[in-house]
Amino acid sequence: METRGGAIIASHLRRVYRKGGRLFRKGGETVAVDDISFQVPQGTIFGLLGPNGAGKTTTIKMLSTLLIPTAGTATVGGHDVVREDRIVRRQLGVVLGGDRGLYAKLSARANLVYFGNLYGMTSESIRRRTGEMLELVNLQDRADDRVEGFSRGMKQRLHLAKALMHDPPILILDEPTIGLDPAAAVELRRAIGRLVPEHSVLLTTHDMHEADQLCSEIAIVDQGLIVAQGTPDELKARVGGNRRVVISTQAPLNGRLAGVEAGLNALVDVQRVITDLDDVGGSRLTVLCTETPRALDTALALLRATDAVITQVQVVEPTLEDVFLSVAGKSFE
């Protein structure tokens, strides 16, 4: 098998939309995806992160055979998405999500049965998988109700069931938890987490937390380009300056702080130490560092030696949001 390199391999994908050209008026062009390359390793979850209009959905549509790239190539399970589209479709489960995409007049069960047929499953498999899937997404009770009456979250769950129906080795999920309540989102994330290592998953999301929690590798996309890529930890390491330990004491320490400062500055991990007063009149010590555990440990030990009463300890790790802000220079939402 040639798939060992990656379940999904995108190589210099580019997609330009023509817009508005009609009769005598030549339309402009939108570069939705400029030049995107990445690999989703076998049995892992790979995240595409980026603001609205970054080109995530467009990338996904190209990978799932719905859209032909303007340039570049991609393989899914070792098969070219343009030339071998039928084989790719068989191996792929896709959640495009949203309110559409399901047969509204059909029940949840009838939808799954129909898609099972469209994927060429045997009746026996269809029957078994329908039951399993409805249970997986917790829709057994509503299985025979028409989809048109479903809430957004229920539809989203049914979308996932549909995508998993034919047990594809590779999954592409476009904002899978959009529209779900927190409890349902947690539930669904757990379900997605359980998909590996049997499956390989590519997902897009706006939720930094979700990406951090689920993905073993993340690519941050902005304006059709990948602006940063790596494991969540690698990405966060890039904005190491945001790692800090903040400790407050009950009373101002004044002169006693000099020793603490000197002690901390002696550590290699520590970049800077700032002292000031907090809102309630105590001293506040902020340690900017690359590794928090040693800085925290040392700071506490030194402070205790001064007999200070510690009222608050805060360890701030960088988030993907910080990463995003630093690479794309703008915030989400």
């Binding site: 055979t65 719905l66 479709r89 995409g101 399901l102 047969y103 060429g120």
Partner: peptide, 9 residues
């Protein structure tokens, strides 16, 4: 539903 349909083989 055409998107879902065209995703299938």
């Amino acid at each position: 539903t055409s998107g879902s349909l065209f995703l299938t083989p």
